[in-house]
């Protein structure tokens, strides 16, 4: 059995194998294009292109990375075609790389919290409010560009940690540090901009 597996063309692409990656590709496209239909089209084109180019594909291990590479081209094509549209605040296009240096501000020199997280009441309730998602997006966009990209690939697109490292070009050690800082920053931003805001502001919002 091992032998026959080795004799087959090693990693033949098939529809089922490609379809497995559709959700991840869709989320990636959706984050860039901000439109479900456009995202769906881009994914469709990507899978089709992948299918046609399957002879060029080597090794199933990097399939998802390869597909994302194709998808990026499709998305770039889209922006080129609709060049008149102004792209605002796309997740990984902002260049605010200023202080990516440390989480020192969050902790005192003895390792204790400087301030520290307060308790949030019923945080899930926020999910029902459109205003919360705007703030969530703002907080994400406030992250330094590289950090935002790493966090996006992991938590929003849903890549595995090793795929994120490859895609973002960072080391394993760098990954842990970056994700942790992103969480510290997002947490603080959401606390300041949402959870510590007066209740009335939130409850007035019946959309």
């Amino acid at each position: 059995m091992l032998l026959s597996a080795e004799m087959n063309p090693p990693d033949q692409l098939n529809e089922a194998l490609l379809a497995e990656h559709r959700p991840v590709l869709f989320r990636y496209a959706l984050l860039q294009l901000k439109d479900s239909e456009l995202a769906d089209d881009a994914v469709q084109e990507t899978l089709l292109a992948a299918w046609q180019a399957s002879a060029n594909f080597e090794g199933r291990a990097g399939l998802r990375t390869w597909l994302i590479g194709i998808l990026k081209h499709k998305i770039a094509d889209h922006w080129r075609r609709s060049a008149r549209e102004v792209v605002t605040a796309e997740f990984d296009q902002i260049d605010n790389d200023e202080d990516e240096s440390d989480e020192d501000a969050f902790f005192m020199s003895n390792g204790h919290w400087n301030g520290g997280p307060s308790t949030w009441n019923d945080p899930e309730a926020a999910f029902k409010q459109q205003e919360f998602w705007t703030i969530y997006e703002t907080c994400h966009n406030n992250l330094p560009a590289k950090m935002a990209q790493v966090f996006m690939l992991r938590e929003l697109v849903g890549l595995d940690t090793d795929e994120v490292c490859q895609e973002a070009g960072i080391s394993d050690a760098n990954y842990w540090v970056t994700m942790h800082r992103a969480r510290l920053r997002l947490r603080e931003c959401l606390e300041i901009r949402w959870f510590n805001q007066p209740k009335t502001k939130k409850e007035n919002n019946h959309a």
Partner: peptide
């Protein structure tokens, strides 16, 4: 809250969709 942030990321995508 770090777990909440993970759920929020998924929720954001769903909301966008």
């Amino acid at each position: 809250q770090s777990q909440f942030i993970r759920r929020a990321a998924k929720g954001y995508i769903k909301n966008l969709h």
